[in-house]
Design a protein around this nucleic acid. Structure first.
Lengths: 117, 117
DNA sequence: CATTTCTATAACCATTTGGTTATATGTTAC
DNA sequence: GTAACATATAACCAAATGGTTATAGAAATG
C-alpha cells in the first residue's frame, strides 16, 4: 500500500513555482506582498511598466500559488503565500540531501519500514 | 567604506538559477550529477529526447552555475554544483525572513493594542 | 587508416513569455 | 447619474524557449 505524501509536488507545479521566481519584478512583488497586503494598482505604481504588465506578473504568481488575491471593493488585494515559498525550500533541501548522499540512508529507512509493517 | 557582500547575487544571476530549475528534466540532471559525475551522452540516454536537446539543458544549467563541465578524453563530465543550490536556498530564506518580519510587526501591533486599551 | 563515439553547433520550427495599446466592466465618489 | 478609478482581457509584437534534424570536428577503437 502506498501512502501519499502530502508534501509531494507534481512536476508542473514545481515548474510554475521556479518559473515564477525567475523574474526580478515578480520576486519583488512576492517580497512586497509578504510584508503587506497591496492592491494590484499600488504594485503597478512601483514599477516602470504598464498596469496590464504587472497584472500579468501577479497572474503568473497566483498560478504558481506564490500569492493569493482577495477582492476588496473595486480593488484586488494581493498577499504573499509563505507556504509556496516553503515548498520551494523543501525542493532545494532535497537537492542538498542528495548531494550529501543522505538519500541512501532515507531509502534504507523506508525500505526497513516497508519490511516491518 | 563599503564592504561588498560576496553572497549578494545580481538579478540576472538569480533569474538564471530559478529559470534553470523550472524544468523537470533539468532538475533531474542536477540530481543525477549531484549523486555522481556523468557524461552528457550518458545523461542523454536517460531521457526521451535527442542528444542536442540534453546538451542544451546542460548548457542552461552551466550558465546558471548549477553544474560544471570537465573534459575527460572525448567526453564532458557533468557535475552538480551544491554552491549554486545553496545560493538559491539563501534567496528563499530571505523571503521567509521577510514573512517573519511581518509576523513580528503584527505581534508588536497587537502587543501595543493590549498595552494601551 | 577507417570507423565509431562523443561533443558542438547551425538552422529551423512551434510555443511561450513579457511587454505594449485599446477596450470593456465593475466600483467608488461627487 | 456622471466622472474617476481599479480591474480584466483582447489583440498584437519581438524575443526567448525547447525541441528537432543535419553537419562537422575530436578522440578512441578496430
Amino acid at each position: 500500500m502506498v501512502i501519499e505524501m502530502s508534501t509531494e509536488l507534481a512536476d508542473d507545479e514545481v515548474d510554475r513555482i521556479f518559473r515564477a521566481l525567475a523574474d526580478a519584478t515578480r520576486r519583488d512583488i512576492v517580497l512586497r506582498t509578504l510584508r503587506d497586503e497591496v492592491s494590484i494598482s499600488a504594485l503597478a505604481q512601483a514599477y516602470d511598466m504598464s498596469f496590464p504588465a504587472v497584472h500579468k506578473h501577479v497572474a503568473v504568481l497566483e498560478r504558481a500559488g506564490l500569492v493569493t488575491k482577495r477582492p476588496s471593493g473595486r480593488e484586488r488585494i494581493v498577499r504573499g503565500n509563505p507556504d509556496a515559498i516553503r515548498r520551494a525550500q523543501q525542493l532545494l533541501d532535497r537537492f542538498e540531501l542528495v548531494w550529501r548522499g543522505r538519500i541512501d540512508r532515507l531509502d534504507a529507512l523506508f525500505a526497513a519500514e516497508d519490511a516491518t509493517p
